[in-house]
């Protein structure tokens, strides 16, 4: 009698400790994210120290990048990254918003479903495939060459599906009553969009564009294939060959010596900081827009 009571108590405590153990395993898995990020920050900082102590702040301001002379100035690549990303955004944003408006406000339900499928598929095409098409078709067969513009176009094609689907999700939350009220007052479709859909979605749209920008800044392979790998070019001529931070890392890592590798890691670190800032601002804007929409 007493032994079976003891057994019951023991079983219950064992069950409780298994329960607690599961909780701790889950907590540990969540903590893994912090661990990996800390490891990335620490390793990258440690490995980029040599070039930063050799070059000082010149690393960020010098326009000369010459591994044989041990001179590493990252400015042209920072410029190239921002320039190609701006070209991509300039092409992608109007198109994405137009497509999202068409899907949510114009297309009949059946067409809408197929278009959403098609955009999902476009988002699933690997970036290296766009790069291959860019280098063998767009730049060679169409004669566009390897340049900022070619890279910008390829990046635009890659980020359009992301911006489109985020914009579509935001636009879909426009209250039906607002839209019907606008139509009832005699508004045309475009006036209805201008009066209800666009004001309602502004915050979400800005966030979507910023997330697309984050993707464009970090995209490596497509840019590495079509940007042209020119060293030290700072020019606003979109047809000139240029270079971007991720493209330099991908193209030069193979034959880099110790200090050169350190310079490339410092470049990666710079890219890391820029993209994280852009992404965090984007997330904050999206979160605020979502809160406002729930409140409305």
């Amino acid at each position: 009698m007493s032994s079976s009571a003891n057994l019951a108590v023991e079983l219950r405590t064992r069950k409780r400790s298994a329960d607690a153990a599961f909780g701790w395993v889950a907590r540990g898995s969540a903590a893994f994210v912090l661990l990996v990020l800390a490891a990335i920050a620490l390793t990258m900082t440690a490995r980029s120290a040599p070039v930063l102590s050799a070059m000082g702040l010149d690393f960020f301001t010098s326009t000369q990048w010459s591994p044989p002379e041990k001179v590493y100035g990252a400015l042209p690549f920072v410029f190239g990254t921002l320039f190609t990303a701006s070209i991509a955004i300039a092409f992608a944003v109007p198109v994405s918003i137009g497509v999202a408006l068409f899907i949510t406000q114009v297309a009949p339900p059946r067409v809408r479903r197929y278009m959403i499928y098609a955009i999902d598929l476009l988002a699933a095409v690997p970036s290296v495939v766009f790069g291959l098409w860019g280098v063998l078709v767009l730049s060679r067969d169409f004669g566009l060459g390897r340049s900022f513009l070619t890279a910008g176009i390829i990046l635009a094609v890659m980020i359009t599906p992301i911006i489109t689907s985020l914009s579509r999700e935001v636009m879909e939350t426009t209250p039906q009553a607002d839209k019907e009220a606008a139509i009832a007052l005699g508004a045309t479709r475009w006036e209805m969009i201008k009066a209800t859909v666009l004001p309602h979605s502004t915050g979400g749209l800005v966030g979507a564009v910023m997330l697309g920008l984050g993707r464009a800044l970090g995209e490596t392979i497509a840019a590495a294939l079509v940007i042209g790998s020119a060293l030290g070019q700072i020019t606003t001529n979109p047809l000139a060959a240029g270079n971007s931070m991720p493209a330099v890392i991908a193209n030069e890592w193979g034959e880099a010596g110790t200090l050169h590798k350190s310079a490339l890691i410092a470049l990666a670190m710079t890219l890391f900081v820029i993209t994280i800032l852009v992404n965090l601002i984007a997330n904050a804007i999206v979160a605020r827009a979502q809160r406002r929409m729930r409140g409305a």
Binding site: V33, L37, T43, M44, T220, A268, L271, T275, V278, N279
Partner: peptide
């Protein structure tokens, strides 16, 4: 904190992740 850092980690460019794994 974990949620915030997950958002940060989602924004890490893939080439940075590649370099990190190379180093460690």
């Amino acid at each position: 904190t974990v949620r915030f850092m997950t958002a940060v980690m989602a924004g890490v460019p893939s080439i940075v992740m590649g370099l990190f794994i190379y180093l460690v």
